[in-house]
């Protein structure tokens, strides 16, 4: 079976007064119907990598890759129309902050229903039914009431769940989730992750889960890429993240406080310039 997504030598750079800044420097991976985690700190290029797949980059960014294909479609050369057709129907994107992704003058329920209709000739009544079912699936109590609210009337955590519902209702083949649960309480986070988990297991959706939370990624994903300064420095099976060999990954893991340990001092990371290239 061919992979759902193939990326080879992905590069993103931005012009600055002192010359181009390379934010992503030669990232390669392929994704099947699995949960792939991308972890890294701010500025590691993990979010840009995710956005590159949909070519949703700032206007001044320069994107290049030897290969960037989704299910046989070359995303690099695809015309905007093709991309637009893919976005939202076959490839979903969930961002950390729902503020920028929801239309402020449209009821949230209608936005979800519209997403359901884009997917394929369902009636308005059926779209509404699916939207309500999806709101319920993301653990929103009283979906009927929430359906009629405007984005400014919902809390951050609820907006995040609405956003996830909107992205999941067209049943995409690939979901790119950039810190999708960071704004949520841990208990809600668990429940939302369970929904994503089910979609991967049941429907064979591919999931790219971008996060700064190593523990979460290692417990939720199948495979993990660790990014540092625009490069993938380590790739591991998620369950095996504790056995990481790269000093950066090891440093990150060790610097996390844990409930069950009594270290007074946390080891801090001393960054080795060689990591940029290795």
């Amino acid at each position: 079976m061919t992979p759902l997504l193939e990326i080879e030598d992905l590069r993103v750079s931005f012009p600055t007064p002192t010359g181009p800044f390379d934010a992503v420097r030669g990232v390669s991976f392929s994704l099947g119907r699995e949960r792939l985690g991308i972890v890294g700190e701010s500025g590691s290029g993990k979010s840009l990598t995710g956005r590159s797949i949909l070519r949703l980059l700032p206007a001044n960014a320069a994107l290049s890759a030897r290969r960037l294909t989704f299910d046989g479609t070359d995303l690099l050369s695809a015309p905007t129309r093709t991309l637009r057709a893919l976005r939202g129907s076959r490839i979903g994107l969930v961002l950390q902050d729902p503020k920028y992704s929801l239309n402020p003058v449209m009821r949230v329920g209608e936005q979800i229903a519209e997403a359901a209709r884009i997917h394929g000739g369902v009636s308005a009544a059926e779209a509404r039914r699916r939207a309500l079912a999806m709101l319920e699936a993301v653990r929103i109590r009283d979906p009927e009431r929430v359906f009629g609210l405007y984005p400014h009337e919902v809390s951050g955590g609820m907006g995040q769940r609405i956003m996830i519902a909107m992205m999941l209702v067209p049943e995409p083949d690939l979901l790119i989730a950039d810190e999708p649960t960071s704004a949520l309480d841990v208990t809600v986070q668990m429940q939302v992750l369970a929904i994503l988990d089910d979609l991967v297991a049941r429907r064979g959706m591919g999931l790219i889960f971008i996060s700064h939370d190593l523990d979460l990624v290692s417990s939720f994903c199948d495979r993990v890429l660790v990014m540092y300064a625009g490069r993938v420095v380590e790739e591991r099976n998620a369950r095996d993240l504790a056995g990481a060999t790269h000093p950066y990954t090891r440093g990150l893991l060790q610097s996390l406080p844990r409930i069950d340990d009594e270290r007074a001092e946390l080891p801090t990371l001393s960054r080795d310039p060689a990591w940029r290239d290795g």
Binding site: V186, L193, D197, D215
Partner: peptide
Amino acid sequence: ASLGYDRAVAA
């Protein structure tokens, strides 16, 4: 919930 993701715990 703080200990990481677990399908059974989530349920």
